[in-house]
């Protein structure tokens, strides 16, 4: 039933995150990766809507992409779980489908 949504664009540059949040059914998985990881951070102009989404969905962020961009785990919003590549594979396998918002 459940869909894993992936967002790989910065929320400040494209509206992929907005569209994803608008169309994701409650209880979906949402994974931030590549430039999408900027959406998972505290204290940004996108934090409020993402914090709200973390209450309605399971939200994940890809650790290697955070590290590449110099972001530490303590900068991540509460309720967002950091996963590695193996975790990404598990998430894809656990969900019925993957919807990549490019």
């Amino acid at each position: 039933m459940a869909t894993l949504h992936t967002v790989n664009k910065s929320p400040f540059e494209r509206n992929a995150l907005d569209t994803c949040l608008r169309l994701a059914k409650q209880g979906s998985g949402i994974l931030f990766l590549e430039d999408g990881v900027y959406g998972a951070l505290k204290g940004t102009a996108a934090s409020e809507k993402v914090a709200k989404a973390a209450g309605e969905h399971k939200v994940y962020v890809l650790g290697p992409d955070l590290a590449a961009r110099g972001m530490q785990e303590d900068q991540i919003l509460d309720g967002i779980q950091v996963v590695d590549y193996a975790g990404f594979v598990d998430l894809a396998a656990e969900h019925d489908r993957v919807n990549a918002w490019l």
Binding site: A68, R69, G70
Partner: peptide
């Protein structure tokens, strides 16, 4: 805009297999 992210300290690209040019 997102260009400011280029200068963020502590970039570590080991995990993504891309050269860290920072």
């Amino acid at each position: 805009d997102d260009g400011v992210y280029q200068l963020v300290k502590g970039q570590n690209t080991t995990g993504i297999g891309v050269k860290n040019f920072s």
